[in-house]
């Protein structure tokens, strides 16, 4: 004998579904409507602006280049740390992991102020760099540094997960087949973690591109797109800033598309085990 659900159960389930769909739709509207409106109003202007607006073009190039440099530095310095955090247990591991979250938690202008304290012209490091003709404040190097500070933790966190998803027994088997630990890492672990590492680098790059608070404290000029859009908004008003902001949105869409492509891969986001 089978029992059918009571009518009150069916009604209750229907109400829950409608409520869930309504809440989800509201959130999506809040997320997508402003971006859609910006693209609708300034999308064409942004593209045309790239043709005529030299300042916007230079700003976009500067943003892309500095974000790429910051990402490269983050990948080079962050990959070994991510591997250590994923694979080894050592004294102070929790402290290191916690320290990595710090830049994500503090307000970004505060991050800029902290960087200014350490790398500003008056600071010891700033003075040492100055003797070699290097400066952080008001230079592209400052932009890279600010981007690195706020976005590298995202890479390390993602890369750590990418390594953790690869079962360490693959490395062990490679070593029983004659590989040294480094060779096993290069031939087995890196290829298996590659998509996760790449996705983490893309997230870092996207975060670096969109950074404003820390950059504007350290470097006002040369201007990244986020600083340029703020300047134009405060100087010329909403109409002038919309094409610049739209261009920034388009730039941010590049990593979004890349991420989707990476995550639709077979092993993306899943553990690599036997």
């Amino acid at each position: 004998m089978t029992s059918s659900p009571a009518p009150s159960d069916t009604i209750g389930r229907g109400v829950r579904r409608v409520l869930a769909a309504t809440f989800a739709s509201l959130l999506l509207v809040v997320l997508l409507l402003p971006v859609g409106a910006l693209l609708a109003r300034g999308g064409t202007g942004g593209v045309l602006g790239l043709l005529h607006d030299n300042e916007l073009r230079a700003s976009l190039a500067l943003t892309a280049i500095t974000a790429t440099l910051a990402t490269l530095v983050g990948v080079v310095l962050g990959t070994p740390l991510a591997y250590l955090l994923a694979r080894r247990s050592f004294r102070g591991r929790a402290l290191v992991a916690g320290a990595l979250d710090l830049p994500l938690l503090i307000p970004h202008p505060v991050a800029g102020i902290a960087l200014l304290l350490v790398f500003g012209r008056e600071s010891t490091i700033g003075q040492v760099l100055g003797t070699f003709g290097l400066r952080v404040v008001g230079s592209s190097a400052g932009i890279v540094l600010a981007m690195l500070f706020v976005s590298a933790p995202l890479f390390v966190s993602g890369a750590r997960e990418a390594f953790a998803r690869v079962d360490p027994r693959y490395e062990a088997v490679a070593q029983t087949l004659g590989d040294t630990p480094w060779r096993a890492l290069r031939r087995v672990t890196f290829p298996l973690a590659f998509r996760g590492l790449l996705a983490s680098a893309v997230v870092m790059w996207a975060r670096a591109v969109s950074e404003f608070g820390a950059i504007v404290i350290l470097v006002h000029t040369p201007r990244t797109v986020s600083v340029l859009s703020y300047d134009r908004f405060t100087t010329y008003g909403l109409n002038e800033v919309v094409p610049v902001a739209a261009a920034l949105v388009v730039l941010a869409l590049v990593p979004l598309v890349l991420l989707r492509a990476l995550r639709s891969d077979d092993t993306g986001g899943r553990s690599v085990t036997a």
Binding site: A172, V173, Q175, T176, D179, V188, P191, V272, A274
Partner: peptide, 20 residues
């Protein structure tokens, strides 16, 4: 001794073939 210097082969039940 390091794993690679032991002349010891190992086959796990779950094989651990390199998926790439």
């Amino acid at each position: 001794a390091p794993i690679s210097a032991r002349s010891v082969g190992l086959v796990y039940q779950h094989a651990y073939l390199f998926p790439h």
